[in-house]
Simulated scan of single mutants.
Amino acid sequence: MKILFAHCRYQQTGGEDRAVEAEMAALREAGHDVSLLERDNEAISTIWDKAKTAWSLPGTDALRAELRAEIAEHAPDILHAHNIFPLITASLYDAARDLGVPVVQTLHNYRNICASALLMRDGRICEDCVGANPYQAVLHRCYRNSTLGSFALARMIAHHRDKGTWSQSVDRFIALSEFSKSRFVAAGFPADRIIVKPNSPGALFTAKPEPQERSGALYVGRLSQEKGIAALLRLWKRDWPPLSVVGEGPDAPVLDEAVRDGRAVALGPLEPEAIAGEMRRAALCIIPSRCYENFPMVLGEAFASGLPVLASNIGALGELVQEDRTGAQFDPFNPDSITGTIDAAFADPDRLARWGATARDHYEKHLTTAETTTQQTLIYRSLTGDGATA
């Protein structure tokens, strides 16, 4: 098949960018012709750039024509959209429909129903706008504490809800977990068009890890409030092994303090190969998110590495990490729950090893590149008239 991916690259590379790269590589390995329609959010630099981008968020006729020409040049059988915010926009769907190209959209985050994209406000879960008036976001300045930015996002959400974009312009949605699907259905997305398919960690993690002595804990992700890393670092005990931290972000000063007193090791942003190496050495991985995750790449990477996961018990993480099988769960807003779970994990290395083995088994049954690529191909073929279903 000829498949065209569409993606706005983030200013700070994260899990969505890695997921797109992994999917493209897997589809090419399976024999498909895959190309990329890409924008880079680094292009938004001046005040004028920001104002123009904010005004264009619902989509424009000019952008529709520009995207139509790009799609026509590639002549794909399928258009698969990933992050289209803010430079591609839903004009992509209209351009594809003009050309008769079916559209698949992966729902990596909650941007289409929440101005913050996280279903989070003031450090807590918030679903006030789910299926309700999105302009509440303006009152609370949900997008980067900006009234104007929040208005632009609320306007975009309201426009596409009123226009019926989600029921008319996208042929299939891919949600990364059942929990994620439930939130979009609650917001009015058509349940019969949403297929649940998890992320796969990609080829780097295919081989079964060699047996070796493991030690310590690992965090991989953005250093920001919604990820819960600052709260975790403040609770990290001196008698625990230092927490190895991969990533960068605004909460870096909290990490620096933990490094100074020997409770953490800052590894900075690492390439995927180096992350894979850290996962094969660690005894456990911690995902302390305070927001609703969908299916973080780090989770699949940890499972593939035979690395058990301690995770927040909210959103999809509560669904994806099996208590006392692939790891353990804690309340990310309860310090005693966090420290108690970590204490119990470090106290029983044999149990950690069992969890890790079960995590690898789960990867081999459900998360391999072969398995997720087959699922993805079935979704595509269900839209191209060859009789397949998804």
Score class of each variant (00 low, 15 high):
Leu79Ser: 10
Cys129Tyr: 03
Tyr135Met: 12
Arg161Ile: 11
Val101Pro: 01
Glu66Phe: 13
Thr106Ala: 11
Cys129Phe: 05
Gly131His: 08
Glu73Pro: 00
Ser116Phe: 06
Pro76His: 10
Leu107Glu: 09
Ala152Lys: 00
Trp166Gly: 03
Asp122Trp: 03
Glu70Thr: 01
Thr46Ser: 15
Met120Gly: 06
Gly59Pro: 15
Asp61His: 06
Glu127Ile: 06
Cys142Thr: 00
Asn109Ser: 07
Ala137Arg: 01
Ile157Met: 07
Pro134Ser: 13
Asp171Leu: 07
Asn133Asp: 15
Leu63Trp: 12
Glu66Thr: 15
Gln168Glu: 14
Ala137Thr: 01
His108Met: 00
Arg155Gln: 09
His108Thr: 01
Lys163Gln: 13
Met120Arg: 15
Phe151Gln: 03
Ile78Phe: 08
Glu66Arg: 15
Asp122Glu: 13
Asp77Leu: 09
Phe173Met: 04
Thr46Phe: 02
Ala69His: 13
Leu148Asp: 00
Glu66Asp: 15
Tyr93Leu: 07
Ile88Gly: 10
Arg111Asn: 05
Val170Leu: 06
Leu99Met: 04
Thr165Val: 04
Arg141Asn: 05
Val138Glu: 02
Ala54Cys: 03
Ala81Met: 12
Cys114Pro: 00
Ala51Gln: 04
Arg124Ala: 12
Arg121Leu: 12
Ser169Pro: 00
Ala69Cys: 08
Ile174Gly: 03
Ile78Ala: 12
His82Lys: 08
His108Gly: 06
Ile125Thr: 06
Asn109Thr: 02
Glu127Tyr: 04
Cys114Val: 03
Ser177Gly: 11
His74Thr: 07
Val103Phe: 05
Thr46Cys: 03
Ala95Arg: 06
Asp98Pro: 09
Asp128Val: 12
Ser169Tyr: 07
Arg172Glu: 09
Ser169Phe: 08
Gly164Tyr: 02
Cys126Arg: 05
Ala152Ile: 01
Asn109Pro: 03
Leu107Cys: 06
Leu176His: 07
Lys163Phe: 12
Arg97Gln: 02
Asp128Phe: 02
Pro58Asp: 13
Gly59Ser: 15
Ile44Arg: 09
Val138Ile: 13
Pro86Gln: 03
Ala69Asn: 07
Thr46Asn: 06
His159Ala: 11
Gly131Tyr: 01
Asn83Tyr: 08
Ala132Ser: 14
Ile78Gly: 05
Leu148Lys: 03
Phe151Ile: 00
Leu139Ile: 12
Met156Phe: 12
Pro102Lys: 00
Glu66Pro: 07
Ala81His: 10
Cys142Ile: 02
Ala152Ser: 10
Leu63Gly: 13
Leu67Cys: 05
His140Thr: 10
Asp77Gly: 14
Ser91Phe: 13
Asp98Trp: 06
Phe179His: 15
Leu87His: 01
Asp128Pro: 00
His108Gln: 04
Ala132Met: 03
Arg64Trp: 05
Leu63Asn: 13
Asp122Arg: 13
Ser91Asp: 11
Ser116Leu: 04
His140Glu: 04
Arg124Asp: 10
Leu148His: 01
Trp55Gln: 06
Leu79Val: 10
Gly59Asp: 14
His74Met: 01
Tyr143Asn: 07
Ser91Asn: 11
Ile113Gly: 09
Thr53Val: 14
Pro86Phe: 02
Asp49Ala: 10
Tyr110Gln: 06
Gly131Ala: 09
Lys50Ile: 04
Cys129Gly: 08
Asp94Gly: 13
Leu118Tyr: 13
